[in-house]
Design a protein around this nucleic acid. Structure first.
Lengths: 212, 212
DNA sequence: ACCTGAACACCGTTCAAGT
DNA sequence: ACCTGAACACCGTTCAAGT
């Protein structure tokens, strides 16, 4: 039965999680999600792995959906961070946007189940931290495109460009994740999509001033 | 207890499904999917609604995943049909492709849970009827673009165009389904995406000969 | 405030038995 | 070939009780 215990309390039997059970659960849930998908994520098994009773998670997450929402929120934070750092380097706008797109697809493919959680929101309400996290992602794209012109028309095309950019990356990632195209084909498709968008009227209007 | 019985056998007590239990299950499962999502789809409740024992579905679907796969396959058939008929009418290529994209998004939004089932395939094998059904969808797009040039370069750009077209529609549909943009914004985005793709070098190469 | 452990209703899957 | 019904292991959720 000692094999059921974690590594850090082979000596002491009881005092386990001080106040960080919540994060422990989230971290273990993330790997369970990655390994077994959403269906493979069981609250009871999660509690078992954390070394607590099956009722314990209830103190931190009212139900399973609450845990799933928290995972999605953390996912958005991590994605935003990945994308932001991919964008941070030097190079032309085209190169930086390309790196960003690549980071996005990398994340989506590497954490397909989490991505599914993030983009098939079950929650009805339009407010909440989860929506904020999603908005933050678009802001990164906004920053990358440099200062915006103050004309309304330009802002409109900029919004459209951002949405189209995000939608296209999302779609390509879905194609890869569902094994309909290979990873290499996906990378080529990302590059092609970048060209198509940047050479278009919409793209030229949207990034008129942005030249890192 | 008579309330548990279906409409067609208020008189006779036993002879129920002759050999069509399979389709009955699939049809009821489709509405359960639409109403309660994938999580809300229970084999036992499905059997209950169909008026058979909980073990009966086993005769037609070895396990729950097999039912889900069958649902996805039917989904592809229906999507292909919708898209094909949207494409069938008259008008310029731009208009026909626009109608097709609209039909695609309509389907994806109206049957979001089914769409999720279709595009997050759990099956590892690359063969099988499910993959065939997905391929059929791309063939419709191929037909719409008219006869292809026999040069290899042209075929390559055509393949790329089709994938990019599909990915973009998929991404826009995901944005709508996750409530991140409204239906109207989605429609506008579809239209914008069409313009961007058709005015690009890639688009011009891909549909060089296709003019309804 | 946080965790335990029994209880409840539900589930997917297996399988011997019926027709 | 198709369906029934008991059995098994597992699950999410609730809740009184402990500390």
């Amino acid at each position: 039965m000692s094999s059921l215990l974690g590594y850090s309390e082979l000596m002491t039997s009881r005092p386990f999680h001080h106040g960080n059970l919540r994060v422990v659960l989230l971290e273990r849930a993330e790997v369970m999600l990655r390994e077994g998908g959403v269906d493979g994520l069981s609250l009871r098994e999660l509690a078992r792995e954390a070394g607590v009773s099956h009722g314990a998670p209830r103190s931190h997450f009212p139900d399973r959906q609450a845990l799933l929402d928290a995972l999605a929120e953390r996912g958005f934070s991590r994605l935003t961070e990945d994308v932001r750092s991919a964008l941070a380097g030097s190079g032309s706008l085209r190169h930086r946007l390309g790196r960003m797109a690549q980071a996005y697809v990398d994340f989506a493919v590497g954490d397909a189940a989490l991505m599914e959680l993030m983009f098939t929101t079950k929650t009805e309400g339009r407010t909440g931290p989860l929506q904020d996290a999603a908005v933050g992602l678009l802001e990164v794209l906004d920053d990358a495109m440099g200062p915006s012109a103050d004309a309304d028309a330009s802002n409109s095309s900029r919004e459209t460009f951002k949405l189209l950019f995000g939608a296209t990356m999302q779609g390509i990632a879905a194609l890869i994740a569902s094994r309909r195209i290979s990873r290499d084909q996906g990378n080529a498709l990302v590059s092609e999509a970048m060209d198509v968008m940047l050479e278009s009227q919409l793209g030229k209007q949207a990034v008129a001033q942005g030249s890192g």
